[in-house]
Structures are given as structure tokens and as C-alpha cells.
Write a protein that binds this DNA or RNA. Structure first.
Lengths: 149, 149
DNA sequence: GAATAATACTTCTATTATAGAAGTAAGTTA
DNA sequence: TAACTTACTTCTATAATAGAAGTATTATTC
């Protein structure tokens, strides 16, 4: 069905088309890194617990840029560093990612290690968690991309 | 990271743990078949547009049963047929699947072919679409699993 | 009641993707 | 200017997938 890593149109089904982009072992972890963990650099993503291979990380970052979910900019502090960040389309996945976290929390409880404060917020006010996430991304953009100043 | 198709605990991250189950090209399509398309048999799933291989379908159905997202029962009309259906954990994914459909609708518009009536409902009242989906699943169970009668 | 067909798999092989190790090129620091 | 960092690239072995073909059980047709 899907040959090569590249995104191909499948069948017009909204689930199938979404999976052409995010339906593999690594892509949503990269989205997670950018959305929840504040990891915006190649090197940081290489160092996460899940231990992605450098070649796979490169391929996925390129694919996500082509698909329009992420973009990159050069690091203000160094030309050899690069910053990756979510585009509006990528950020819009927050409405899928937060429900996925909530599903895991309800159904895979025993396997999870969620920081207490976040777990409590997910329990009491998941919408607030979503809004905080978007606010954090917006703040990061203000601090790191508006280098026009 | 993930060797073999089997689910392995990863890191305690709710996204990573969820991806150990649903993070591949095919698994969410099987969930879609059961949740939205009313396909409950092996043969029906082989015949979808996406053309899954029979060996992969078998492996995924077994994995999903072990993970507790689906279950199976023998078909009331024939011993050689088998019915697959979503467990409560599987049905709970409706809260991820509907947002994923909505994300696709907002961001991949040009690639999609969504039936007009459903598209309109997604536009005007997505919560109603979600409730209708759950009701349909419940009705199906009443008609097909309560063969105690 | 024997031959045919349908259903849910299983097996096999070729192709493709991934993991892991090692290297490279450009920019930075000591 | 020598060592180091960062973001890749390349290579090879292993694992997963696609596609074709087969099997076992149950049902249907003649």
C-alpha cells in the first residue's frame, strides 16, 4: 500500500490520508517532541528515550516539512544549529494528540508515567491542558522566531 | 525501537505507549473499518480500497485482540465465519478518531472524498457524529452479539 | 453424498523499511 | 589551527510488508 516513506494519496478516506502522513512508529513522536516536550533541535530529538536512528529522524523531518506540518529556521545563536517547529497544520494536531493522551490515560494506566501536575490537570481540566500547550507553543515562537528584531 | 510487531512497553509516555499499539500503517484502518464502515469480517476488510495483505491483516487482528481493543465471536449464521468488534477500550478511540477526521477535513481538504451528508454533519455538529457512531456500534452489538436469544 | 466453493487463515519469497554503526561537511570554540 | 559540535549521509544487517499461493474447516450445489 504505502511504498517508500513518502506521502501518497490513498483513497480519499480522511483516516487513510491522515495515516499517510502520521501513520508510522516515529512521526507522532516527533510531533510530541515539538508539541509537548519543547524539543526543537535535531540533536535533542536523537537523545529522547525512544532512541530514534539518525537516518530515520532525518527522513521524517524532511517528510513532515514537505507535508506542511513542521518548518525549520536557522538557530539565532549558531549557523550550524537548526530549529524545527510546528506549522498551524502541525499545531492543529493538538486536537488529536490531547485526546490520544487522554485515551492512554484511561486505557493504559498501569504502563504510564505521567508527571503528577500534568496528570492532575488532565484529570480535572483537559481543555486547559490543551490551551496551555498552544500558549506554550505561541510563546516559544515569539521568543525564537521573531528574530527580525 | 519496536522490533517485532508485538506491543512492547516503551517509555511510560502516553503517546509512545499508544503508538506501540496503534502506530503503524494498518492498525487504525482496521479500527476505522469496525468503527465507521461497519466491516466486521476478515473478508470484508481484505476487500477495502487500501488492499491490506492477508498475512498482515491476520497479524494485526491478533495483536489488537491481545491488546484488548477488539474481540471476536463466531458468526451466528455460519461456523466458518467470524465477527470482529470493538471492545470498550477500542470504542473509546472514537474520541481520537473523530478529531483525526476533523483534522484531515481542515488540513487535507483537497485530497478527501467524504460523503456529503457526513461532511455536513462534521461541519455543523461533530459531537452528534461521534454520538451517532457510538449508537451505531451499540445497535450492531445488540443485533449480532446477543445471540443468547 | 461427492464435488465445488467460501472463509479464515498460513506459508513462502521478493522487496522495502528500519536499526545501528560509522563517516562527512560546515560552523564554532579553545 | 586543532578539536569539537551539529546536522546530516552512507553502509550493512535485520525486520517488516506485499503479493502470490496454499491449507483446513465448513457450507452449498448437483
Amino acid at each position: 500500500m504505502v511504498s517508500k516513506v513518502e506521502h501518497r494519496d490513498r483513497t480519499g478516506c480522511p483516516i487513510a490520508c491522515a495515516l499517510d502522513i502520521i501513520g508510522d512508529h516515529w512521526t507522532l513522536l516527533i510531533i510530541r517532541n515539538l508539541m509537548f516536550l519543547g524539543l526543537h533541535e535535531y540533536k535533542e530529538m536523537l537523545e529522547t528515550e525512544e532512541q530514534i536512528s539518525s537516518n530515520i529522524l532525518t527522513i521524517r523531518l524532511k517528510m513532515l516539512q514537505q507535508a506542511g506540518l513542521i518548518a525549520s529556521a536557522s538557530h539565532p545563536e549558531s549557523k550550524r544549529r537548526k530549529l524545527y517547529y510546528l506549522t498551524p497544520t502541525g499545531k492543529d494536531l493538538v486536537h488529536v494528540m490531547v485526546p490520544l493522551v487522554l485515551w492512554s490515560r484511561r486505557n493504559l494506566r498501569e504502563h504510564l508515567r505521567i508527571p503528577n501536575d500534568i496528570d492532575h490537570l488532565l484529570e480535572t481540566d483537559p481543555q486547559a491542558f490543551l490551551q496551555e500547550t498552544l500558549q506554550r507553543l505561541s510563546d516559544w515562537e515569539d521568543n525564537n522566531l521573531k528574530s527580525l528584531v
